[in-house]
Design a protein around this nucleic acid. Structure first.
Lengths: 329, 329
DNA sequence: AACCTATATGCACAAACGTGCAGAACGGAT
DNA sequence: ATCCGTTCTGCACGTTTGTGCATATAGGTT
């Protein structure tokens, strides 16, 4: 009755045909035509079989960049910030949206191979993560859990994709259970947070978060050209924004704010925020930060200085600004 | 001066162009045309960049078969012989040579991902291994060693590709040092072998063999349609062949013979053979057996019964015969 | 049985791709 | 500077591949 057959289940024979086709195409270099003859079907069907083999994660394509010979940009970032950098080649003339799309696609495919069975994957929300979630490639895993990193207030929803959509996409890409975090992004009063944090339903999520093996997030930057929706989306009121402007806060990760030197102590807003404390986040083995758009550079610098990420995926222009040489060579 | 620039060293800019192209093509789904415009070159150059990225191992394509849903043939073999089976889909109407070629290609690409830095890889010789060696894809590793498993007598050379060629191809695919085993396949007298085995030059090889992390070999079968060249190539004389025929020997791995029940004790020929004793071979963590051609089935059964392989790559027809149902369903 | 909906197939066309070839660019050697 | 051998490049062509559309097929509902 419903139209949403979200989980794509291939019939067994179709699945095994896809496998055979993939083997013949990618491992034996046969043409689709030749494969079609062997499978007694049409070439176009083979083309579609191969598509589904790729989409379903049956075929894994990955690019291993021998670190030593790689572009010096990545090594430079690696050395400066102690983070595994993946620079996405993007023509500088593209607009923000196109850049984001390409960064997101490459991020999604870079993340894929890192996800394994029994992983607990923390996911933030925001336009970056939304874009990433739209490009995930399927991968068959067992007993993975996707857990939401921070609440997503729902007073305004200004066209931004809901956090739950992001989570759902991650969940269905990896066949994982999804655990949402049903609290607002910010509480109005720190006391309410304290109270909620003692609720068993919330503690269950916090407990999951404490056992995360992978965390995936973007960064917000207070001075971004078009600011993260955290700053613009009505989550914070005038006085909150005033406080931020008056302090040295440069950005946030999962609605937890920090200063340019990576510190976050004494930022009162964080007491009402629902994201994981930075110290807690840093317990996670693999922390993947995705950034697109050079205007987030200040927030990003802070996040890296704070050591929040182990892996960084960002566009080339931002990468260049990050290490200093903006324009030419 | 010399023409052999065996090791393909790409210029740094070409290498980084290849990397960028690969990222854009495989990770961002751009067309070669679009990539060409971004790299300010022609589409055909991009096509070639991508080829070289694949060949040089920059792009790794692998097929992960979710074991539970996989073709039941593989599970059946796995359960019967306790070996990780990779069945290569091949049309049964193909001739031996074509089948071998396709099995070899898929074997080569299956082996690739298993090779890692610091591996010591033992390699046998024979027509199967020769075919495999011709299809290896490059992979950048550090400090790997390729060590020859058994001597290759050189009295006859009847058009068979030399063992040293096989070794060399493995070596250059993985950027590994190659250690040949400069002894005949069989000694005429066991005493000579004993003497040689005390030579330091030989002991160095034996020591390497004892530390192998991967071994790759085919099987010989005494009753094969066109027998392994061990049986036909003049390595053994009339009386030797008589002994084999008179015993219950079914086949060999790296010129070491065994019976159908997997035993090898008391086979006198083995005392003059230069391959690793079966017990020694079984110390190796990963033992990959490649088989093409259903006529090797008896030798293969013996080898599997002896537990010589941890991984088995073979064509579909042989796989079917191996588990019983030859013809139809 | 009749119907409906969702999915799979093959055809035909357009888009994307690989490769032989001839000329350009490079890098020594003389 | 000139020569020669090698490698790289772009073009042009034929091949291979993706995809909209119309049709067929399967699965479920009335």
């Amino acid at each position: 009755m419903h139209k949403r057959a979200e989980r794509i289940l291939m019939s067994p024979t179709r699945h095994s045909d896809a496998l055979r086709a993939a083997q013949m195409y990618y491992l034996q270099d046969l043409t689709m035509d030749a494969i079609a003859r062997e499978l007694r079907t049409s070439r176009s069907t083979v083309s579609r079989l191969l598509s589904s083999a790729r989409e379903s994660g049956l075929v894994q394509i990955q690019i291993r960049n021998p670190l030593d010979t790689g572009p010096e940009l990545e090594s430079l970032i690696r050395d400066t910030y102690n983070v595994d950098a993946h620079v996405v080649p993007v023509l500088e003339t593209l607009n923000e949206a196109e850049t984001l799309d390409r960064v997101a696609m490459q991020a999604a495919r870079t993340i894929g191979p890192l996800v394994d069975s029994n992983a607990i994957i923390g996911v933030a929300w925001g336009s970056t993560l939304s874009a990433v979630s739209r490009h995930l490639t399927r991968k068959i895993t067992h007993d993975c859990v996707i857990v939401q990193l921070n609440g997503a207030g729902n007073m305004h929803t200004t066209g931004i994709t809901y956090a739950s959509d992001i989570m759902r996409r991650f969940g269905s890409a990896y066949g994982a259970r999804v655990e949402q975090f049903p609290v607002p992004a910010f509480f109005d009063h720190a006391a309410t947070k304290t109270a909620m944090w003692n609720e068993r339903s919330v503690q269950r999520i916090l407990e999951l978060q404490s056992r995360m093996s992978i965390a995936i997030f973007g960064v917000g930057s207070v001075d971004a050209d078009y600011p993260s929706h955290v700053y613009a989306g009505g989550y914070l009121d005038e006085s909150d924004l005033g406080i931020l402007a008056g302090s040295d806060v440069v950005g946030d990760v999962a609605t937890v704010f920090f200063r340019g030197d990576g510190s976050s102590d004494g930022i009162v807003l964080n007491e009402r925020s629902t994201g994981p404390a930075l110290a807690e986040l840093k317990q996670v083995r693999r922390r993947i930060c995705v950034v697109s758009g050079a205007s987030k550079i200040n927030g990003l610098r802070g996040a890296l200085t704070a050591g929040l990420a182990t892996d960084l995926i960002l566009d080339e222009a931002s990468a260049r600004r990050l290490v200093g040489f903006d324009g030419a060579a």
